[in-house]
Design a protein around this nucleic acid. Structure first.
Lengths: 345, 345
DNA sequence: CTGTTAGCGCTTTCAC
DNA sequence: GTGAAAGCGCTAACAG
C-alpha cells in the first residue's frame, strides 16, 4: 500500500470517465451534475484517492497548518494550552505544528519564518523571548499574554488585573488582615505584569498597606522566599502577614511547603492563593495544588484560534482580548464550602 | 513583507545571473563552482529567499513532517513525551504535527491517512484505540507501548516486567512483608500489561502470596479502591497488607489519599510505589507525587524518533525496544536516604 | 455545467 | 560544471 504510488486526480478522472477539472470540482464542492458527482465519488472510493496536499498548497498557498510556539509542554499550563489550541484548530479544519522553543530564540525565529514563507497559514505564540523584532504588522500571528512595543499584534490574555484584585478580596473575605504578594515575573512585558497593579489597587481600595516581594523569576526562588519569610517573622516567630497572593500556583505551592517546614499551618495560620489553576495529574479533572485564581485555559486557546482565523480571513480583530478568571478552592484557604476540583461546567 | 509575494528560485537565478538548476544545486548542496555558489548565496541573502516547501514536497514527496498521535497533552506523561519527541525530531531536521486524538478514532485514522498519502514522512503513536486495522506493514509508524496482533510495527516501551519486579523488591527491602498490587489497565494490550507478570514473578521469587486488584481503568476507580481497602481491613482495622505497588503514580496517589483519609499513615503504616515518574508542576525538576518506578520518558521519545528515522531510511529496525526503568524516592516509602527530586543525570 | 489548459516553484534529468 | 526543459498533482480560468 505504501509502496504503490498514490492515485492522482488524473487516475480518478480516467476511471470516472470525466475531465480532470470535474474531479477537482467535486473535491472542492463546486456544483457538478449529480451524475458526474456520483461517478467521481465512486472512483475516489474505489481508488482510495486522497488529495495531495503539496500540489494543492503549491497552487493555493494554503497549508491548513498553524504553528504553535510555546516554551515546552513540560509545564502543565503550556501543555494544557497546547491541547486546547490543537482541538480548536482541528475544529477549524487546521492541523497544528508544535514548536517547543524553550529558550532557543533561533527556533522561534525559524517557525516564524515558516509563516513568512507561507508554509503555515498562521502562528500562535506563547513565548518568553524577544519575538517582536522578527515580525511585521499584518503578519498572521496571535500572541498570548506578551506585549510587544511598537507592534500591533493581536493579544489574548486573562484579566490579570481583575484576578489579582479577586485574590486579595478573597483573602480578606476569608479573614485575612495582612495579605502580601509574592511576585516572580518574567523580564518580558506582558499582561501578567498587571497582577501587581491589581494587588496594589485592591490594597488601596481596602485601606491595606501593600507589602510584596518583587523579583525576576530565577533559580534562587526558594532562597528569596526564605529571606522574605525571615524578614516577616517577629522575634516571637509570629508572622507579620496572614495571607499570601502568589504570582503563580507553583510559587504558591513552594511557599506553602516552606511555611509548613517552618512550622506554620496553611490555611490555619496563613492562607494562600495562587494564580493559574494548575491541576494534579490532569486538567481539568485533577485537584488544584492550592486555592487559585484560575485562568480559563480552554477559552483562552479557543479565543486565540478564533482571532487567528478571523485574521487570516482579513477581518479586523481587536488588539487585546481579556478573558475573565475565577477563584477556586484548593485547600490553602479557610473557605469552608471548599469543592476544590469541581469542573468549571 | 507578508503582502509581497515571496521570492522564488527564478528570482534568485535572475539576480545571480545563473540558471535555475544552479540555484537548486546550491540549495541542495550539490557541487557548483565556487564563483557561482557565491553569487547565488548573495542573491539568496539579498532577496531573503526561502525554498517553498510545497513545491519541494510535490517533487520529492518528502515533507520533513512527522505526526505524533497521543490521547492529549492534559496528562503530564503524554505532554512530557510529546515535548521530547518534538526535541528529538527537531534535532533530525523534522517538524512535529501534533494530534491529540483523545478518544476520537476518526481523528487517529485521519492522521494515519496523512502518512498513507505522503503528507507526513512518518507517524509516532501512543494511543489507546484500535489503530491496528488502518495500517499495513511497511508503514512508517512507530508505536509506544501498544501491541497490535498480526502486525509487525516497531514498538518502544519501558521494561515493565523488570519495573514491577523492582517495585516489589524495593517494598521488601524497605521492610514490607505483604505487598499488594493495584492494577487498572487499559482494554488494549500493551507492554504495560507485563507489570502484572512482573509482580507475580517477584512474589513467587520471594515466596509471597500474591494479592492484587485487577480492574479495567474506569471512572469508578476510587470506589473500587475503597472496596479493596475494606476487604483488606481486619476487624481491628489493621490492614492485611503493608505495601502497595500501584499501576501508575496517579493510582498510587489516589490510594495514598484514601489510606490517609482512613487514618492510615503513609509511609509509616503502608508504603506505596507507583509507576511512571510523574512530577509536580514540571518534568523533570518537580518533585514526585509518590515513590515511583520512573519511566525514562526522554529516552523513550528519543528511541521512537531514532527508530522512525531508521525506518524511513529503509533500515531494518527491531520489533520491540525495551528501556530500563528506575526506582526513585517520592515520600511514600520508608527509605530514609530519600532525595525525591534529584535529576536523573 | 464540462473539458482543456496554463501554470504554482521546485528537482532532476539531459544535452552541452 | 552548467543551462534548458520536463514534469510533480493540483486549481482556476477559459472556451465550449
Amino acid at each position: 500500500m505504501t509502496s504503490k504510488k498514490a492515485p492522482t486526480m488524473r487516475d480518478v478522472a480516467l476511471k470516472a470517465g470525466v475531465a480532470l477539472g470535474t474531479v477537482s470540482k467535486v473535491i472542492n464542492n463546486i456544483p457538478v451534475s449529480e451524475k458526474n458527482r456520483k461517478k467521481v465519488e465512486e472512483a475516489i472510493a474505489e481508488l482510495n484517492y486522497e488529495v495531495n496536499t503539496y500540489a494543492r498548497g503549491l497552487k493555493t498557498q494554503k497549508s491548513n497548518l498553524v504553528a504553535l510556539i510555546i516554551p515546552n509542554t513540560l509545564n502543565p499550563f503550556f501543555a494544557t494550552f497546547a491541547n486546547y489550541i490543537e482541538s480548536a484548530l482541528y475544529r477549524n479544519g487546521m492541523k497544528m505544528l508544535l514548536c517547543c522553543a524553550g529558550g532557543i530564540p533561533e527556533k522561534e525565529e525559524e517557525y516564524l519564518n515558516l509563516a513568512m514563507n507561507n508554509k503555515v497559514d498562521g502562528v500562535i505564540a506563547l513565548t518568553y523571548s524577544d519575538i517582536g523584532k522578527y515580525i511585521s504588522d499584518g503578519f498572521p500571528l496571535v500572541v498570548f499574554d506578551r506585549f510587544f512595543e511598537n507592534r500591533v499584534i493581536p493579544r489574548v490574555a486573562s484579566d490579570n488585573f481583575a484576578g489579582a484584585c479577586l485574590a486579595v478580596e478573597k483573602l480578606l473575605e476569608f479573614g485575612c488582615k495582612r495579605p502580601v504578594y509574592i511576585r516572580f515575573h518574567s523580564i518580558f512585558p506582558g499582561e501578567s505584569d498587571k497582577r501587581l497593579a491589581g494587588y496594589l489597587h485592591a490594597c488601596a481600595a481596602h485601606g491595606i498597606e501593600p507589602d510584596y516581594l518583587n523579583m525576576i523569576e530565577c533559580p534562587e526562588n526558594l532562597a528569596l522566599m526564605e529571606d522574605f519569610l525571615r524578614q516577616h517573622q517577629r522575634p516571637d516567630k509570629e508572622l507579620t502577614f496572614d495571607g499570601v497572593f502568589a504570582h503563580t500556583d507553583y510559587h504558591a505551592f513552594l511557599f506553602m511547603e516552606q511555611l509548613r517546614q517552618n512550622g506554620y499551618r496553611v490555611p490555619e495560620d496563613v492562607q494562600i492563593i495562587g494564580f493559574d489553576g494548575i491541576r494534579k495529574f490532569r486538567y481539568p479533572a485533577g485537584d488544584l495544588f492550592v486555592s487559585s485564581i484560575c485562568q480559563p485555559i480552554e477559552q483562552l486557546a479557543e479565543k486565540c484560534v478564533e482571532i487567528l482565523m478571523a485574521r487570516c480571513c482579513g477581518a479586523q480583530v481587536p488588539p487585546l482580548t481579556l478573558l475573565p478568571v475565577q477563584y477556586r478552592y484548593g485547600g490553602s484557604t479557610r473557605e469552608e464550602t471548599g469543592q476544590g476540583s469541581v469542573l468549571p461546567r
